[in-house]
Design a protein around this nucleic acid. Structure first.
Lengths: 164, 164
DNA sequence: CTTTATAATTAAGTTTGCTTAAATATAAAG
DNA sequence: CTTTATATTTAAGCAAACTTAATTATAAAG
């Protein structure tokens, strides 16, 4: 790795993944949610009120699939689906209070350990780390969500093609 | 939130997830891997040589399911499955060179943006952030992987039960 | 008004990822 | 040796999450 900070960031990411994913998946399983469903709750929460096709695009599935997914979430009382009064072809999708609670619980399941971690530091260290993280968070806002093709897709797809 | 650092950590986690997950899932989809498969590659890489049932436990599935999952990975040339000479009931599961390459590519897809982020800082900032992250990584080692029930499962399950 | 376009849903069928139960092979114990 | 236990695989079947195609409802354009 060319860059010391980049290396640290990658290392930290591995730590996060190892600690978080197991609990998160256990949470999903024990409460009978699919990853797709929880993912949908996240996206709905993040986008605010949005339409069915929008959500499908967001999740990378067809609008038909999104509609079906939503139907279940509505039946479970996690999502409210109402007509858009402006254009009645559209639906407005929002989380119910309960849906938001489930989302929060899933976040807690995934990152509850961060609270324990934070408690391990002295107040001075906490202050220093807090500032460092704020710096990272600030700069992250300059980055778009999609990395076009800096991600190594091409090489992999070539590789796959040859191996088939 | 009671703690400033904990709050920053949660916030930073949200940033990481938002940036990483979309690219990661797109990677999986475009290259025709399921999450289960990539997850398996991770676990195999992390545990080193291990048996089929071990892997199943790790992934939270039956050994039959693990066997089937592995069969596909073997056919794709990503995993090598050989007899354990010590106890020939056991299989030794290891990544092939190609399997490891796919794993690395998937990591790149997920965290390639971290390189861009790192490049946004001055050398002095990079040094400061590097040290902060190393502090976090160090302390993380003191934490177990499972959080027992600090994760809020109980409250959620009660809630679910009532709503059914 | 009639046509065309758009948003969501429904229907039908496929694939995937699991499960349990049965089969196979090896090891360990009596 | 025979029995019992363990590790993996195979077989059969099920449920979830998609897909495409058809349907319904509304909006916008001619």
């Amino acid at each position: 790795m060319e860059n010391l900070l980049a290396e640290s960031l990658h290392q930290w990411m591995r730590v996060i993944m190892r600690h978080s994913m197991h609990n998160f998946m256990r949470f999903a399983k024990e409460n009978n949610f699919s990853m797709a469903q929880i993912n949908a709750l996240f996206r709905i929460s993040h986008k605010g009120a949005c339409g069915v096709s929008d959500l499908g695009d967001e999740l990378g599935i067809t609008s038909a699939a999104a509609s079906q997914l939503l139907e279940k979430l509505v039946q479970q009382g996690l999502v409210q689906r109402s007509e858009d009064p402006q254009d009645r072809r559209n639906k407005r999708i929002v989380l119910t209070e309960q849906g938001n609670r489930i989302l929060q619980d899933s976040i807690q399941a995934r990152q509850g350990w961060l609270n324990q971690l934070a408690a391990l530091f002295t107040p001075a260290e906490q202050e220093q780390l807090h500032q460092a993280l704020q710096l990272l968070i600030e700069k992250s806002k300059l980055l778009g969500e999609d990395d076009a093709d800096l991600t190594g897709f091409r090489t992999l797809m070539d590789l796959q093609k040859k191996s088939l």
